[in-house]
Amino acid sequence: MPLFSFNTSADYLDAAREMADTGRPTLARLLAEAAAELTPDPDQVARILGEFPGAVLPQED
C-alpha cells in the first residue's frame, strides 16, 4: 500500500477524488474541506467545495 503525503491543497484534492471514485463521499468531502482550508482564493474554495457536494460537517470550537 502506498504512503501518502499531504502537503498541498492538490494532495488533498487528489485523495478526495480517489475517495469519491471509490464510493466514499463523506471522506471525499472531508479531504476537500482540508484542501479548501489551504486555499487562499475564495473563488477556488467555492470551486473545490462545489466539486464535492455534501453536508458541511460541524467544526469543533
Score class of each variant (00 low, 15 high):
Ala28Glu: 01
Ala35Lys: 08
Thr39Leu: 05
Phe6His: 03
Arg29Ile: 01
Ser9Ile: 01
Ala20Cys: 03
Pro58Cys: 02
Asp43Ser: 15
Ala15Gln: 11
Leu3His: 13
Ala46Lys: 12
Ala46Leu: 09
Arg17His: 03
Asn7Pro: 02
Leu57Lys: 11
Pro40Asp: 15
Leu38Glu: 10
Thr26Trp: 03
Glu51Val: 01
Ala35Arg: 07
Leu38Gln: 09
Tyr12Glu: 09
Asn7Gly: 14
Asp11Met: 04
Thr8Pro: 09
Pro25Leu: 03
Asp61Pro: 10
Ala20Asn: 03
Gly23Thr: 09
Leu30Ala: 11
Leu30Lys: 07
Ala15Asp: 08
Met19Leu: 10
Phe52His: 08
Phe4Asp: 04
Gly50Ile: 03
Glu60Gly: 11
Arg24Leu: 00
Phe52Tyr: 11
Ala35Asn: 01
Ala55Pro: 03
Thr22Trp: 07
Met19Cys: 10
Phe52Trp: 09
Ile48Leu: 06
Ala10Lys: 06
Leu3Gly: 11
Val56Pro: 07
Gly50Trp: 10
Phe52Leu: 08
Met1Tyr: 10
Glu18Gln: 14
Gly23His: 12
Ile48Pro: 06
Pro2Leu: 00
Glu51Pro: 01
Gln59Ala: 15
Thr39Val: 01
Pro40Met: 12
Ala36Lys: 04
Asp21Thr: 00
Ser9Thr: 08
Met19Pro: 03
Pro53Phe: 08
Pro53Gln: 06
Arg47Val: 06
Ala35Thr: 00
Pro2Ile: 01
Asp61His: 02
Glu51Thr: 10
Pro58Thr: 07
Pro58Glu: 09
Leu38Trp: 12
Glu51Arg: 05
Gly50Ser: 14
Ala35Cys: 05
Leu3Ile: 11
Arg17Asp: 06
Pro58Met: 03
Asp14Tyr: 15
Gly50Gln: 13
Arg29Leu: 00
Asp14Met: 11
Met1Arg: 14
Glu33Ile: 06
Pro40Phe: 15
Leu27Cys: 08
Asp43Arg: 15
Pro53Trp: 04
Asp11Phe: 06
Asn7Tyr: 11
Ala15Phe: 13
Asn7Arg: 11
Pro25Val: 04
Glu37Leu: 14
Glu60Phe: 15
Pro25Asp: 04
Phe4Ile: 12
Asp14Gly: 10
Asn7His: 09
Phe52Pro: 09
Glu51Asp: 07
Ala36Pro: 04
Leu30Met: 09
Ala34Tyr: 14
Val45Glu: 04
Gln44Lys: 12
Thr39Arg: 08
Arg29Val: 02
Arg17Cys: 02
Leu57Arg: 13
Pro42Met: 07
Gly54Pro: 01
Thr39Asp: 11
Gly54Tyr: 06
Asn7Phe: 10
Asp14Leu: 14
Asp41Met: 08
Phe52Ala: 08
Asp41Thr: 13
Ala15His: 13
Val45Asn: 05
Leu49Glu: 14
Ser5Asp: 11
Met1Phe: 13
Arg29Phe: 02
Thr39Cys: 09
Asp61Leu: 08
Arg47Lys: 06
Glu51Ile: 00
Arg24Tyr: 01
Gly50Val: 05
Thr22Phe: 08
Tyr12Leu: 10
Met1Glu: 11
Ala16Pro: 00
Met19Lys: 15
Glu18Met: 13
Pro42Ile: 12
Ala16Asp: 00
Leu30Arg: 12
Val45Ser: 03
Leu38Arg: 14
Asp43Trp: 02
Pro42Gln: 13
Gly50Asp: 14
